[in-house]
Design a protein around this nucleic acid. Structure first.
Lengths: 216, 216
DNA sequence: GCTTTACCGACAGGTTGTCGGTTAAGTTAT
DNA sequence: ATAACTTAACCGACAACCTGTCGGTAAAGC
């Protein structure tokens, strides 16, 4: 019945990843507050001391998970942006949506992420993503200014506004009708064009494409 | 040394408010997670059972506090908006800033509100405020559309975008230099004008007034 | 006098983080 | 090669909390 405590030793790196994997999974299932460190160690089969040998606190585990999850999205966005052969509009929308995690590996987390138990996780991820992606978008806007596609006096703040809005608003389109989602997407495209000083419908198609494709 | 447990009975309403007052104070001081229900009952001088007689859980206390704090801001905003003698621009900016709690009674909370321990509080307040204020702003935009001051195709979404941005961005201007704050304010005014389809500098003065006055 | 409701405090069952001790792995010395 | 030593992963008992429950008591209202 009871597993004998066969001592298994792994490299620090390996164990840390193991802990993060299980913790992430558990936070998805039960939320950050409800998932206990006991849950983690039981599922892995290690002792309390081991967990705290690798991480100083439960919150540090959370931070590491956030770091791991966001790094992927940010580096993806920064890669997209460098593809100068692709039209700016496509790159812009793709970068924006890299933040919107749904497509990524973390897509199952996404549904749970708004439950109140995950307020911390949500906040930290959002902070991290904004901080990472805003400068990328800003650069793209400047590029658009140079080519005459955009006309933005405050590229940084425009990027902030677009990112912040899309990260909050597109958070909760799960409980919206398809019709409403379309409207929201159109409104977003319209407003983004205004903010960037772009001609009407410059962004519309690129944005609507992504929205309709990822939300079926 | 030890207070005798003289039994003091108060009306439910009175006791509830007492609990909310102390809890709010404690959440400010230590954050929601770090403030325990024991802290609350000790400071008031009541027993555990009494607390749980009035509130079913710690989170319910939080919800009641959020409700209390936001009700004020929302009703203030809705009053402002009704003053049809005041120019629309002034009403708009005033309503926007009613959400930015700094001016209100909760101004001390504000500094603590971003500490990670308060993620839940923060999230709940933001949700509640947006939900309450967005329709108000939307109405104002429609009014502006009629008088020809604005030209907004999606009043609802424009209101959302403005509110969401200002609630996130103006959150953390405490650690910014005065210069940066000014720039941020100007950028916000500029972008709000674009979003609403208003003429240049329509909103600038009203917005800059509020920002410079409330942040000294 | 009877019912309702505010109040009490012990208690169960859970949580996080600490700490001294143990064992495996890696390193140096002989 | 192997013995001796150092480092680092690992263990599990434990202290010090925490939230929410519950049977019982006392005041208020009818």
């Amino acid at each position: 019945m009871k597993e004998k405590s066969m001592r298994v030793v792994k490299s620090a790196q390996e164990r840390k990843n193991e802990i993060l994997d299980v913790a992430e999974q558990l936070f998805e299932e039960k939320g950050f507050d409800n998932a206990s460190t006991n849950d983690i160690i039981n599922r892995i089969g290690i002792a309390r001391g081991t967990l705290y040998h690798h991480f100083a606190s439960k919150e540090e585990i959370l931070d590491a998970i956030v770091e791991r999850m966001t790094r992927e999205g940010i580096s993806k966005a920064s890669l997209i942006v460098k593809e100068r052969s692709v039209p700016i509009c496509e790159r812009l929308t793709a970068a924006i949506m890299a933040l919107n995690i749904k497509g990524g590996a973390a897509s199952e987390v996404f549904d749970q992420i708004h439950r109140p138990q995950n307020a911390l996780l949500h906040q930290k991820m959002q902070e991290r993503l904004l901080e990472g992606v805003v400068p990328i978008i800003e650069g793209l806007i400047r590029e658009g200014n140079e080519t005459g596609l955009f006309d933005s006096e405050y590229p940084r703040e425009a990027a902030e506004m677009i990112m912040i809005y899309s990260s909050v608003a597109f958070d909760e389109l799960t409980n919206l009708s398809n019709e409403d989602i379309l409207k929201k997407g159109q409104a977003f495209a319209y407003h983004a064009e205004k903010l960037l000083g772009a001609k009407e419908n410059t962004l519309k198609d690129a944005i609507m494409n992504i929205i309709t494709s990822q939300n079926r």
